[in-house]
Amino acid sequence: MNYIGILITYIFISNFILTQFLGLCPFIGVSKNTESAVGMGFAVTFVMSIASVVTWLIYNFVLVPFDLMYLQTIAFILVIASLVQLVEMIIQKISPPLYKALGIFLPLITTNCAVLGIALLNITNQHTILEIFTGGIAAGLGFLLAIVLMSNIRERMDGKPVPKPFKGVPAAFISGGLMALAFMAFDRALLTNLLG
C-alpha cells in the first residue's frame, strides 16, 4: 500500500475514534472547546507517530532477537509512558498556556487506547518503518479531525434547548454516532476509485 493510501485509510476509512473506538475517553473528555481539542489532537498525533516507530524498533530489535515477544504489552506501555512524560515536559517549557489548557489530559495520553492501539496494530500489519511512521501520523490526524469536528459540534450545541437528560455527554455520543454514520461514506471502494 502506498503512503497516500495509508493516510486516507487511517484518517477517513478506518478512523480510530469513529470506527474502532480507540481514544474515546479524550474524545468525550477534551472536546468541550476547540482550542484544547486542537492541542490534544496535535499532542496525540506527535506521540503516536514517535511511539509507533519506537515500539516497532523495540519489537524487532530487542524483543524478537531475545525471544521475548510475550513482554510486548509491558514493553510498549512503558515506552509510551516515558514518551508522554517527555512531551509533557516539552509543552510545559514551550507553551505554558497550552499546558494549562490540556491540564489533566496530557498524562492521560498514556492511557489513551489509540496510542497503544496503533503500536499493537503495526506489529500485526507488518509494514516497513516508513509506512509505520506514516501510519502513526495518519492515525493521529484522524484523531485530530474527529476531535476538532466534535468540539465544533459541542460549541454550537451550547445554549441550545437540548432536553435535560441529553445535556453534555449523551448528546456528544449521539453526535459522534451521526458523525460515524457520515464517515461510512468513506469505504474501501472509494480508496480503489481514488488510487486505481
Binding site: L18, T19, Q20, F21, P163, K164, P165, F166, K167, V169, P170, A171, A172, F173, I174, G176, G177, L178, A180, L181, M184
Partner: peptide
C-alpha cells in the same frame, strides 16, 4: 443493522447514558 455498526454503538451509548441521567435525576 445500524446497531451492529460502529455508529450504532455510539448512538446506543448516548441513549443509555441519557436514560441513566434521567433515572438518577
Amino acid at each position: 443493522r445500524i446497531f451492529s455498526l460502529s455508529a450504532g454503538a455510539l448512538l446506543v451509548m448516548g441513549l443509555l447514558k441519557a436514560f441513566f441521567n434521567w433515572y438518577s435525576e
